[in-house]
Design a protein around this nucleic acid. Structure first.
Lengths: 159, 159
DNA sequence: GGTTGAGTGGACAATCTGCCTAGTGCTCCG
DNA sequence: CGGAGCACTAGGCAGATTGTCCACTCAACC
């Protein structure tokens, strides 16, 4: 499961200018259109590219507060039932099961700090949740990105 | 900064089938093409949709291990210089400044657990980092998503 | 030597895009 | 009340792009 330098250039190009069509990509990369098409199909088939969904910014929707909430749960029932219930809360954007003192880590958004309290209350109210610990993200100096990784892979692997 | 029910339906549609063109969207939503075009333009202009970048899966690239690393830093210099240096590490996908006992929280990926050790060593080697605390994400029952939020907004707001 | 996979260059019809026009209904406001 | 502004519909048009073929080359591999 690795990618080529051409793959990396293609992904980089598409990341920077997502609206580009296949034809335009082929021009920019200096290869035939069929090649770009084949590469893209393969990347998608292999799951490297999982989609081209619109990137929605919660902040633009008024959800200015981001927090990481770690949960301790009653473990007798396992993680999944709790995760399922958490998944029903729109403000819960992501849930991981984790190592360490807690059992689950959630990324949560809210409109304001007091709205965050409301969301946390909802989380605490989830059956199986024993206690929570919240950490607010004050700022995000490095927003989520994968590009450096993509650019790095061909360098690490056989070139 | 809020969105309409039609906006929500449009975003939902595009999230589920990102390759759809404007014309096809207008057909599915039962509105005129110009409307979809105008809505999309507005959503992008307002920053609600920040892009249509390809969603790259680190796991498909061989980065199977995800961890959250919290850092304590030497605060005299401030957060930014440290964040800048962290941003140069490809495996660091995200950095937040946070409340609580630590100063920074990073999302990090690695190829294996021992590769994670290497990455952490790199992080520890960053000038200004005093100590780290790593939590490994074992599983991700709820992967990052925004759709429920999008669907929720028109309901909360004026309808 | 033969086979396979990947890439090139070109061609096709069908479709979509960007852009524009005109008309309609609704809301806000002086 | 009349008007202005706005969003939406419905349509038209030229140009560009897409999906899908094809034939041919090149390199690696058995």
């Amino acid at each position: 499961m690795t990618i080529d330098e051409l793959d990396a250039r293609l992904i980089t190009l598409l990341t920077n200018e997502p609206r580009l069509g296949v034809l335009e990509c082929s021009r920019r990369l200096g290869v035939a259109r069929g090649t770009v098409q084949a590469r893209l199909d393969r990347l998608i088939a292999r799951g490297v590219i999982s989609g081209f969904g619109p990137d929605v910014s919660p902040a633009a929707l008024g959800y200015d507060v981001t927090a990481f909430v770690s949960l301790e749960i009653r473990q007798v029932a396992g993680h999944d039932p709790v995760a399922d219930r958490l998944a029903r809360i729109p403000e819960v954007l992501e849930v991981h099961t984790i190592t360490g003192g807690s059992d689950l880590l959630c990324r949560v958004v809210a409109r304001t700090n007091s709205d965050l309290q409301r969301v946390i209350d909802v989380i605490v109210g989830v059956h199986g949740v024993l206690r929570t610990n919240s950490i607010i993200a004050l700022d995000t100096p490095v927003p989520y990105r994968v590009l450096p990784l993509v650019a790095d892979v061909p360098r690490r692997e056989g070139r």
